[in-house]
Amino acid sequence: MKSSIADFAVISPRTLAEALASLRQTPPPVPLAGGTDIMVLLNAGQLEPGVYLNLYSVPELRRPIEVSAGVRDAGTWGAGGADPPGEVRLSALTTYADVRRHAEVRRLLPMLPLAAREIGAVQIQSRATWAGNIANASPAADGVPPLMAYDATVELSSAAGVRQVALSEFYSGYKQTARRPDELITGIRIPVPAPGSIDYFRKVGTRKFQAISKVLLAGLVELGGSREIRKIRLVFASVMPFTYRARKTESVLEGRRLEPGAVSLAVETLRTELKPIDDIRSTARYRLKVACNLLEEFLGTTMGC
């Protein structure tokens, strides 16, 4: 290990209020969730010395996954019966393992367990949190694209109150996020997609498991009766300096019928929209080509449905 722990201190608040109050100090303590990003930095001698805020000691941040009812839509859910599920809420310390084990989430938001399964290995999944993945703001974060494709919002709490920020508005540049240093992510809210939505999740990593992404696409499409694209989300990890929603390509597709011409147009648009990164894990050229391949695969298989 390349650090000396003597350079660090940890505070373990008992309540959320205490935790939020502590964040008003300058400099504010740094949140410590599952530690799977922070402990890696500690090991590599790259963790900023200072005070860390242990979220594990705060019971309010460890709530189980909540599934709440949505507004009844008579057309799709029929008359009578229970209210359809409308929203899933993950708490700050919800882990990938929690999601993999949750039968209802598996059914309602199938991309989440797919992503969870491919993040690190089981030992990482039992510690690592979705909120940590969002806050860490790595361009290679695998949990973020499916959340963003599902139009998730991030619940940010500070001593001053709570605000909701759309995840697709959360990032503005490399490691730049909407979170203020005095805020904690206290929850992630994910609306259940319209029935009949088709999703696509594919991670291309350096190997099958225990791999950082080189390219990842999470896609969600809502088709109308005559196969016109009502709404589409295309979210990439590891291609751009931050999790990237390909809005230009989305807008080219929205309103169009899903047919071969639309697919090639979309791929062409994506090819110019992306400005991929070159790094130790892969090349810009590879990323661009594979990103286009994944889009083609997504739209192609959807068309085949």
Partner: peptide, 18 residues
Amino acid sequence: FLDGQVVMSCMVPTCQAE
């Protein structure tokens, strides 16, 4: 195992095993 779950012990700060 930490409370029955498999974890990498190099990734767990001791305060979280309390």
